Simulated scan of single mutants.
Amino acid sequence: MKKAVILLSGGLDSTTCMAVAKAEGYELYPISFDYGQKHDRELALASKIAEHYSAAEHRVIKMQNIGGSALTDSDIEVPEYSEDGGVPVTYVPARNLLFLSYALGYAEVVGADAIFIGVSSVDYSGYPDCRPEFIDAFRKMVEVGTVAGLEGNPIEIVTPLIDLSKAETVKLGVKLGAPYEYTTSCYNGEEEACGVCDSCVLRLRGFQEAGIEDPIAYKKLT
């Protein structure tokens, strides 16, 4: 059976990627990261999602927190949603670059054919490492920096959500039976999502535009 490493955060997008990989017949090797985020709720839910899908193995990688983001630095507050534009303070420097690098090493170890990551060029919150240009650059690195690449069979970087809006992502996940009730998107990480941070607002808007009820609880609905 072909194998896939999935970057699994416990959020809506990465869980949709799990559902897509499962539907495409991959044996699942999700990988999650403790990168110094202010809460561990997403990691607990990632484990639950991995169990739901009977993953072959679920790795949680412990990383050093370098700060510089509202998600990892206690001195920077998580802001409420804003349409001001620009890169928000919730951007974590080099996060997807580091995550994909770990995932690539893991993929070589387990003999995976593909790595799934839930980035979107339509709804990416201003993060530079969620754009197609970044993914294309990493694919080039895979070709020149791995044994599989040098042998002409590079590990595929799969981005099933890259051209999808949040509403389209929700519809896809629901169609594939993704367990959204086990997911969290809130940057504050409490049992009830705040409903006002960027991630909550974008998620809620996606469910509303899809005409589907979000199965998780919120403190406040925008």
Rank of each mutant, 00 (worst) to 15 (best):
M1Y: 00
L8F: 06
S9G: 08
S9L: 07
T16L: 03
T16N: 03
P30A: 06
K38V: 12
H39Q: 10
D40Y: 04
I49T: 04
I49Y: 07
A50V: 03
A50Q: 08
S54Q: 15
H58W: 02
K62S: 08
M63F: 02
G67H: 13
G68M: 05
L71N: 10
D75V: 00
E80L: 08
G86N: 05
L97T: 15
L97I: 14
A103G: 15
A103C: 13
G105V: 08
E108G: 00
F116I: 02
S120C: 08
V122I: 15
Y124V: 01
Y127G: 05
P128E: 11
D129R: 05
C130A: 14
R131I: 02
I135H: 00
A137D: 10
F138N: 02
F138R: 00
K140G: 13
M141E: 10
V147W: 13
A148M: 09
A148H: 14
G149E: 08
E151L: 10
I157V: 15
V158C: 02
V158M: 06
S165I: 06
T169E: 13
K171Y: 05
G173H: 07
K175C: 01
L176H: 08
G177T: 04
A178R: 04
A178M: 03
E181K: 07
T183W: 12
S185T: 12
S185R: 02
G189E: 10
E191R: 15
A193H: 11
C194H: 15
C194P: 15
V196H: 15
C197M: 12
V201P: 03
G206L: 09
Q208D: 12
I212W: 04
E213R: 06
Y218R: 02
